[in-house]
Design a protein around this nucleic acid. Structure first.
Lengths: 301, 301
DNA sequence: CGATCTGCTGCAAAAAATGCAGCGGGTAAG
DNA sequence: CTTACCCGCTGCATTTTTTGCAGCAGATCG
């Protein structure tokens, strides 16, 4: 789209924080880029960037403008795929910002969608809750999937899924014989925990806040994959939510057992988008698909 | 705004229905305009206009695109005035599509607003209900003020004002002695009526649908101003709603008397905008002003 | 205090947009 | 059916705009 190049350029400069850096990623000279900025600022009658020694930064007028520009860019993308839809073929690109715990769930959903619409491509980024919401705001993601997010004004919830915390343990573990385990039973054994950045840890700490018990993990990690392996290797207990377990079990000797709901409150997975934005056709359809799938498998609201 | 010229061109062609005509209004050659269209269509990969013998017409892809384009144009206008707002001065242009009956009401409101913000300019067009709603859709109006409109999916109501039909008559008329008159009393005298296109006529016909009485106007017109003059000149009765009466009375010897509410149902004035659109700052503030003023003067909902 | 960034400018080359004249095709009136 | 007219479109020359190169002044950092 010829007429949008200036907009794309401004966006690139805003992201790069420097004209020269942006010019490099755009494969043009800094001269050309600089001149386009000056032209726009003259059109507007006011500067949109502050000039700093280390580069440039949007001023308040620029913030207003960049919002508009990013909307225009994604709107135009949406219109283009709507038009492509008219011609019969669905094309597009869907970007998803997703909490680590939910990453194992997505691949087969994406595969199912792509079987119907091979022209649609995906990008999935692992983002903590805050970064996921920020990604929606700056249009680097169409959809966000997060566990127990900090609610932001810009986040528009499309679906919530209730999830109970499960213990992940080796098939040989004494507690593996029970369908549901109590939290205090788990704490009699050595445990591995995700760091405090994760919702699972958050829920477990909240559960013990009024209790005499405390969490004393022997291993702590920011990787659920590592925690799973560790649990098997050492015969200890780790924790996860069901949606984080890939279908067919994570590891050969691992089983998962729900923690009694009285002990640890359940958490909510949120699927959402940027408030007020009209999603591209493809992203909206994919969100529908996720919603249908999640509703059959879990307790949704 | 340099980068929008192509969009403006496309919009002009869509409105003109012909490349050559549009080129003339844009003060460029048809060649240049034609080439821009071809360039856009190549970018999109599909044509957006059907070529007819008498000119061009949007096809379905074009309809999709023109919607987006008009949104972009007015969005950019909004952003520009937001940026101007940052610099302290409010600028902008407000376009209003308004039923004839409401035209006398607007001037002093506009004057009041312009006293605060001299940088804001206005355009007011007299439009029947249907045309007013259409004006919102194709972005030729920011706000619409209509009496008893046909509700459209695209019309988002901002405010409604209840209005009772009044008889307009000469100060010497026998009925002028009463504060409230009955409809049947009026029909004992010769009357002047607006045509069936107007809400006032509509309400009066609805009132008589189950009655033995009927409306037999001696004069019919599509101009309330004419009807008022006629009522005075000939000593007959015409009809209008209060908001259609300029403050201080229309004509020297004219008085208005409410028709008893049991006889003629009251109607509603609707102020509205295009659904889902974010109005420019200036238009939104002016709508606030109208709302505040109407709420002090009339019964609103 | 030099090294290294930054945004910005003069000038020439490259690219894009524009205008002119004219072609072919369709509609509407004679 | 013919004629006149209006339409969108194209080749070519001209004008306008954009781009790249080289270099400048200013600020930061080691």
């Amino acid at each position: 789209m010829r007429h949008m190049t200036t907009l794309l350029y401004i966006d690139a400069v805003a992201r790069a924080g420097s004209i020269r850096k942006a010019a490099e990623t755009l494969s043009i000279t800094s001269t050309a880029l600089n001149r386009r900025l000056l032209a726009i600022e003259e059109d507007l009658g006011v500067p949109i960037f502050e000039r700093l020694a280390r580069g440039v930064r949007l001023n308040s007028a620029g913030e207003l403008l960049i919002h508009h520009i990013r909307n225009q860019i994604s709107d135009m993308d949406r219109v283009r795929s709507q038009i492509a839809d008219l011609a019969g073929e669905r094309r597009g690109h869907i970007t998803i910002a997703c909490s680590q715990a939910l990453l194992p769930y997505l691949p087969q959903q994406i595969a199912a969608y792509r079987r119907e619409h091979p022209g649609v491509t995906f990008a999935v980024f692992r983002r903590d809750r805050e970064a996921a919401e920020q990604a929606l705001v700056d249009h680097t993601a169409d959809l966000a999937l997060v566990f127990e997010p900090i609610r932001l004004a810009e986040f528009q919830t499309l679906l919530t899924v209730r999830q109970h915390v499960h213990a992940m343990l080796s098939r040989d573990h004494p507690l593996a014989a029970r369908p549901v385990v109590r939290l205090r039973e788990c704490l009699d054994y050595p445990i591995a925990l995700p760091t405090r950045a994760y919702g699972v840890r958050h829920l477990m700490e909240a559960a013990l806040v009024d209790s005499a018990m405390s969490l004393n993990p022997v291993v702590e990690s920011d990787s659920f994959e590592f925690l799973g392996h560790q649990a098997i290797a050492e015969g200890i207990i780790s924790f996860q939510i069901p949606i984080g377990l890939p279908p067919g079990g994570i590891l050969p000797n691992m089983v998962s057992r729900q923690i009694d709901a009285r002990d640890v409150p359940s958490g909510l997975i949120y699927m959402g988008q940027l408030r007020g934005r009209t999603l591209p056709v493809a992203a909206a359809r994919f969100a529908d698909l996720l919603q249908k799938d999640l509703e059959t498998k879990y307790e949704c609201q």
